[in-house]
């Protein structure tokens, strides 16, 4: 009975739009959105293709505090164009990270938190999205010298494409069971490799391989959290105070190359075989 009560009191994070996500995560005092909707920095490319723009181009940048730590949240709006990265939204994230880096280099760190609900490059702005994502990658690596850069993937979209690489560069990655993380979206794999290789309608298979629980079990994400605003906020508050440290996920190359040696490339990967391989060679799971 108390479990049911607790469940009913939970506030879903997944159901919130990007701006509300930021407002709920930051301390109430001193929240400040940068380049908000009334500045109307919208996509210059979508209207040329007869596509309706959103006033913030689907990215919310909000500064504030979490406990005693200064943070900046960059949140992708999952509902607008599949959470895709266009020129403006990409520049908002890369630019905010560049400002945070300048502050960190001046001894005034601001911890970035990236809410990565994104399909990756917005194909209607293809090369502008790709370029911006490369610039985001650069900033994440540079910022990690100074402190944590935290990625959060909760669903419903998941995190794919070039932005999954951004997730892989974050010093800590927080995911829910509903989250998915992978380079190529299921539809794209099916298109390129065929339905036998990857059936984009096979939801159990997709979540078993790309889902948040599997990614934590294999060490490709750090923490699993429920779809609960308070729980995500509490977890973030603990992570924002972490010290800079080398990131095993990108620098322990020998471990990952040893892992690949154990993989049978033509056998169909399952959640179990993948977990076992990671457990044997990398000490995860």
């Amino acid at each position: 009975m108390t479990d049911v009560a607790a469940l009913l009191q939970r506030q879903s994070f997944v159901e919130l739009p990007a701006r509300s996500r930021c407002q709920h995560l930051l301390d109430d005092a001193d929240q400040r959105e940068l380049l908000g909707p009334f500045e109307r920095l919208t996509s210059p490319w979508l209207p040329k293709q007869n596509i309706v723009t959103q006033s913030d181009d689907g990215v919310v940048i909000m500064r504030g505090t979490l406990g005693d730590t200064k943070v900046v949240i960059a949140a992708v709006e999952p509902a607008f164009q599949g959470g895709s990265m266009g020129e403006v939204g990409g520049a908002k994230i890369a630019g905010a990270l560049a400002c945070a880096l300048a502050d960190a280099e001046n001894g005034d760190p601001v911890v970035p938190i990236l809410l990565l609900e994104t399909g990756g490059v917005r194909l209607q702005e293809a090369n502008c999205g790709l370029a911006a994502i490369a610039e985001i990658h650069d900033m994440i690596v540079a910022l990690r010298e100074h402190g944590p850069v935290i990625g959060v993937i909760t669903g419903p979209v998941g995190c794919f494409g070039g932005m999954s690489i951004a997730a892989g560069l974050c010093s800590e990655l927080i995911v829910t069971r509903e989250a998915r993380l992978g380079l190529n979206g299921p539809q794209v794999i099916e298109q390129e490799a065929g339905v036998d290789e990857f059936d984009s309608r096979d939801r159990p298979m997709i979540w078993s391989l790309l889902g948040g629980e599997q990614r934590v079990a294999t060490g490709l994400a750090e923490a699993l959290v429920g779809d609960d605003v308070a729980a995500i906020r509490d977890l973030l508050a603990r992570h924002v105070t972490a010290s800079p440290k080398p990131l095993a996920r990108t620098t322990d190359i020998a471990r990952f190359e040893a892992l690949l040696e154990t993989v049978a490339p033509t056998e169909r990967a399952t959640a179990r075989t993948t977990r076992d391989a990671f457990a044997q060679t990398t000490g995860a799971a």
């Binding site: 490369a134 690596v141 997730a167 992978g182 380079l183 190529n184 290789e197 990952f256």
Partner: peptide, 24 residues
């Protein structure tokens, strides 16, 4: 990039992140 089930299962995004980070 490679498109495949094994690739996604074993974290192709992470391999590419490591490569990008190498250049950075």
């Amino acid at each position: 990039q490679a498109y495949g089930r094994t690739e996604e299962a074993y974290g192709l995004h992470q391999a590419l992140a490591a490569a990008a980070e190498g250049t950075i």
